[in-house]
Design a protein around this nucleic acid. Structure first.
Lengths: 119, 119
DNA sequence: CGATTATAGGAAGATATCTGCCTGATGCCA
DNA sequence: TGGCATCAGGCAGATATCTTCCTATAATCG
């Protein structure tokens, strides 16, 4: 499946929306697994039990400059007895793309043109 | 199920045996998941697909002084794209217990008395 | 020897990320 | 408008460790 240059796929929109919500809630960073759970909670997007879709989308979005990631401190993960997390943050580009989503959501007639630059 | 004071359970013997084999093969350290796979390969012990048994046994053996563990360098795990490993090494006590296993394996008539000190 | 107690076994799930493979969908070109 | 090429979706598995809960088993005591 190919995408229109500059367009966002539904899952990418969902990720950006989740990032905005978390930002609003005081957390500027999030990790893949929490996004997956969040999407399950609100019954949004595909179930994503197969995380393949999500993690691939995260990878694409980072490559496209919408997100930026870093690995969390290893000792923190050990202290909490769980695997290490890859933490994501929205870039300025991502925030603008997210804003455009909301704007366009209010105007469904218009085509979507924000987001990813053509490769 | 309770154990006789000082006795080793079959799974603990299997772990020590695996540790000796790895030692012989040049690796002084091993991690839980590799032991699990090793046991599956040689069809030994219970299948251990439910790793609960193995990791609990590893924990008991460390508490009993037979093994000693450390977490591997986090960057190494990242570089290899996998979760971090907990590396185990046999202590002197563990080696002696392992030796006693072999000795007693050759003399099945005798009862087993090596290994764990009574609590 | 039987009852009781204590501990191990086993299954399942949790946490978190990533990849391979195959199928399906979308954009572009003629 | 249809065909082709490219890329995303989806599933399943992989890697690695740990915990909960319930059952089963073994040791101890009377």
């Amino acid at each position: 499946m190919r995408r229109k240059p500059g367009a966002l796929l539904p899952i990418e929109e969902a990720i950006l929306a989740a990032g905005l919500d978390l930002r609003r809630g005081g957390s500027s960073e999030f990790h893949g697994f929490s996004i997956a759970k969040r999407m399950q909670d609100i019954g949004e997007a595909q179930r994503l039990t197969a995380h393949g879709t999500l993690y691939k989308a995260l990878g694409r979005m980072e490559a496209a400059g919408l997100l930026q990631s870093r690995w969390e401190e290893p000792d923190l993960a050990l202290a909490e007895g769980r695997p290490r997390r890859r933490l994501y943050r929205m870039t300025g580009t991502g925030e603008r793309a997210a804003s455009t989503i909301r704007t366009e959501s209010e105007r469904p007639i218009l085509g979507r043109q924000a987001g990813l630059a053509p490769s």
